[in-house]
């Protein structure tokens, strides 16, 4: 399952081939090959230091790869004329001159691409930044900076959106807003590439997950596959016959049983056959967190990072 492109409707909007970046003797990105298709949100997951931001900088040509290549619609980013019309990126929300207003920051970007200045007002509205647009960016909260950064990414109405940890610093409303926005952009047929170090953020956002660990591709899977494999939880006073009937049954309490990999319909039918009295019967989806663990289990060297990430995940 990992590493095969999950969907056939594949257009290769962004194509990474054996992309490698070393800083001194530190390998930040290690032979990463990846293709991103249009019309989907691809989640780019990995613990802090995994190489996600570096990968995005390489795609934008901000850093030069040590070897390998990163192509956007078949060409290096640097060869795109008016690149913001093809790729809208938010790499670092705080990368704004603190003395310049949000509106003037966007206007300078628009001028550089021959984008009409009224488009600046549109994206300010879309991102809820219109009221704060005249304030100097140095006075913005992290959440406001993220919104301004997203406004900048949307400015050129691009086919590809690339956002590095856009949810950082946003309140729950903001998180929901980003999720809805990215889903709708993907539905319009755009390519959305969004990174996070928290699995929980990806759960309702991504169609596909690409997991990076220490610069290497650890897993690449469709979200639907990850969430597949529904199990069943049953409750009742005398469940022993049912526990004997399913190999995967496990006691989760004195009168509770969970049956992995078996649908509620089947468990219910079996209970009926066996004459077992049930007080409760419910489907159980494996948490994405568990699937993530399973996905990354193969990668031994990744194990240390994974526990670190799991702790962070637990606090959110």
């Amino acid at each position: 399952m990992p590493s095969a492109p999950p969907t056939p409707s594949f257009t290769g909007m962004i194509r990474l081939r054996h992309l490698t970046k070393r800083y001194g003797d530190k390998t930040a990105v290690d032979g990463l090959s990846l293709e991103l298709e249009a019309g989907a949100v691809t989640g780019f997951l990995g613990p802090n230091g995994a190489g996600k931001s570096t990968t995005m900088r390489l795609i934008l040509g901000l850093d030069a790869p040590t070897s390998g290549s990163a192509l956007v619609k078949g060409v290096p980013y640097a060869e795109l004329e008016r690149p913001l019309r093809t790729v809208g990126a938010l790499l670092d929300a705080k990368a704004v001159h603190p003395g310049r207003s949000g509106r003037d920051h966007l206007r300078a970007m628009a001028l550089s691409q021959r984008i009409p200045l009224r488009r600046v007002e549109e994206v300010l509205e879309t991102t809820g930044m219109a009221a704060a647009a005249r304030r100097r960016a140095g006075t913005y909260s992290l959440g406001m900076s993220q919104r301004l950064g997203i406004a900048g990414a949307l400015l050129g109405d691009p086919e590809i959106l690339m956002l590095d940890e856009p949810v950082n610093g946003l309140d729950p409303d903001g998180v929901r807003w980003i999720r809805t926005l990215l889903r709708s952009l993907a539905r319009q047929g755009r390519t959305v590439f969004v990174s996070s170090h928290l699995m929980s953020e990806m759960e309702q956002m991504a169609d596909r997950l690409v997991v990076l660990g220490r610069g290497r591709l650890v897993a690449d899977a469709a979200m639907a596959d990850l969430l597949a494999g529904t199990g069943t939880a049953v409750r009742g006073p005398a469940l022993q016959p049912l526990a004997d009937a399913f190999d995967s049954a496990e006691w989760s309490g004195p009168d509770e049983l969970s049956v992995a990999g078996v649908a509620p319909e089947e468990v219910g039918a079996r209970a009926h056959e066996l004459g077992v009295l049930l007080h409760g019967l419910a489907p159980v989806e494996p948490s994405l967190e568990e699937s993530y663990m399973k996905l990354t289990e193969q990668s031994v060297e990744y194990a240390a990072d994974r526990t670190g990430r799991a702790e962070e995940g637990g606090t959110t």
Partner: peptide, 13 residues
Amino acid sequence: SRSITVTFACTPS
């Protein structure tokens, strides 16, 4: 301010 990254994203040359 690191806004140089925005400048180069806009004008890669």
